[in-house]
Simulated assay, not measured.
Amino acid sequence: MKQDLKNYYLRLISIFTKVALQISPYLFLRSANIINLEWKEIDFDKKIIIRANKVKAREDFIIPLSQSVLDLLLYVKNFSYSNSKYFFPSNISKSKTMSKNTLNQAIKRLSFGDKILYHGFRATASTFLYEYKNIHKQDSEVIELCLDHRERNKVKAVYNRSLRLDDGRELMQWLSDFIDKLKRDK
């Protein structure tokens, strides 16, 4: 019965909400960053998102994209609205973003609401990345840059502006492969 209810709710959730939830473990963006994602911020050729971070540091945040994420973004592109600047628009108005509660409500409808909230994707990704540092071989700085956590030492931050994109790309691909393997082995 519980699985039937979950399948019913899956049919009710919009394709944009589904894909936003599907890419969230791979990207572990803040919910405001995912729901406000604009088409102009995705560079499919360079395999990156250049996100003007309006949430925290007010600086651009560059997110390397794994192949799994690119595949999902290209898939949802087939359903997009030509008159919407948002990658994940609202069901009510294509000129607006989905509600900040949409993702958490979808998680609840899928009966995971007592186990996780949207922000939990960030904590889970951070935990996995730190737990498996000896396997992926990236240091804490790269993990924190992928989480969009900036250097807090203001003097160091002035001199070190490196985004370590190659390392971030390797780390994001490693996490993507890790998630894909978990899904296959399920």
Results as ranks from 00 to 15, higher is better:
Trp174Thr: 04
Ser140Leu: 03
Pro89Thr: 04
Asp114Gln: 13
Ala157Tyr: 07
Asn33Gly: 14
Lys40Ala: 12
Leu182Lys: 14
Asn36Met: 08
Lys2His: 11
His119Trp: 03
Ser84Asn: 09
Ile135Thr: 07
Gln3Asp: 06
Asp139Thr: 06
Leu70Glu: 14
Ala157Asn: 08
Ile62Tyr: 03
Ser66Gly: 08
Lys133Asn: 01
Arg11Met: 09
Glu141Ala: 08
Ile50Gln: 12
Ile23Trp: 05
Tyr86Asp: 06
Asp45Ala: 15
Asp71Arg: 07
Leu171Tyr: 03
Leu74Asn: 15
Ile42Phe: 12
His149Asp: 02
Ser66Glu: 09
Arg152Pro: 01
Asn134Cys: 02
Ser84Glu: 04
Arg122Tyr: 10
Met1Trp: 06
Lys18Asp: 02
Gly120Asn: 06
Ile107Tyr: 02
Phe112Ser: 06
Thr124Trp: 08
Tyr9Glu: 14
Leu74Pro: 00
Ser82Leu: 14
Lys137Trp: 04
Ser95Gly: 08
Leu171Phe: 04
Ile34Ser: 01
Gly120Thr: 00
Leu65Glu: 10
Thr97Asp: 06
Leu110Met: 13
Leu163Asp: 11
Ile49Trp: 07
Ser126Leu: 12
Asp177His: 07
Phe87Ser: 01
Arg58Ala: 05
Val69Arg: 08
Leu74Glu: 11
Ile13Ser: 03
Ser140Met: 05
Ile15His: 08
Ala157Gln: 14
Ser176His: 02
Asn83Asp: 14
Ser176Pro: 00
Ser31Thr: 12
Glu151Thr: 09
Leu21His: 02
Phe178Tyr: 15
Lys115Glu: 15
Glu38Met: 10
Ser84Met: 11
Leu12Asp: 13
Trp39Asp: 03
Ile63Val: 15
Leu10His: 08
Leu182Cys: 12
Leu5Cys: 00
Thr97Gly: 03
Pro89Cys: 04
